[in-house]
Amino acid sequence: MESEKAKILPFYVLIDVSASMSGDKLDQANRIMPQVVDALAEAPILADKVRFCVIDFGSDAQVRLPLCDVLDQHSSLPSLTIRGATSYAAAFRLLRSEIEVNVKQLKADGYLVHRPAVFFISDGEPTDPEHEWRTAFQDLTAGFPTYPNFVPCGVDSANPRTLATLIHPASGPKQMQMYLMEKGQNPADAIAAIAEILISSMLASGQSMAQGSSGMILPAKQDLPAGISAHSSDDFV
C-alpha cells in the first residue's frame, strides 16, 4: 500500500433507460458523458481528481462505465440502450455496492476519497413496489458511512413528490437539491440542461476543493439553465 494521500472526487450518474426514455431523451442521455469528457479536458486540475461511473437502470441496473478516469485512453464511453421497466430499487442497490467496492479499493490504493456525488436522472415513476425501493434507498443513505450526496433530477413524467424524498442530505449545511424540468419543456432539452448542471457542479466542486472545502457545490438558482427549476426537500410535502 502506498502511503500517499491523493484526493479523489467520485461522481456517479444514474440514468433511467426504461421504455419511455427512447428517442430524443435517450440521445441526449447518451451525450452526457462526451460533454463531461470535454469539460474535464479543459480543466486539468479537476481531471486529475475526478472519477466517473455510469449506471443505467430499467428492469434491472447495470454498470455501463465502471468508476474511472474518463480522460484515460483505456476507458471507452458506453452507449445506453432501452431496457423495459423502471426499477429504482435495482439502481439503488447496485449503486450502494459499487460505492462500497470503489471506495474500499481507492482507500486501499492510498487515496483520500471525498464523499461520492450522485446525479439520478429519471423520466418516470418507479415500477417496483414502494417498500422495496424505499428500503434500498434507506440502505444507501442511512447507516452507510460512505453514503453519497444524492441529487435527483426529474424530466417528463417523473413525480416531484417521489423524487423529493430522494434528496440526500435533505437538510443541514450540506443539503442537496432536486432539479426538475419545468412544465411544457421538451424533455430531451431538459436532460441536456441537467448535464449542464452536473458539469457546472463538478467544476465548482473542484474549485471549492482547491479552496479547502470538501463539500459538493450545486449551482446557484440564478445560474440554472432555462427550463429547469431547483427544489429542496421541503418544497413538496
Binding site: 502506498e2 502511503s3 500517499e4 494521500k5 492510498g110
Partner: peptide
C-alpha cells in the same frame, strides 16, 4: 506532507 505520506512511497 500529503504526497510524502509516511515517507515510504515514491515521493519519500
Amino acid at each position: 506532507g500529503d504526497p510524502l505520506g509516511q515517507g515510504t512511497g515514491p515521493v519519500g
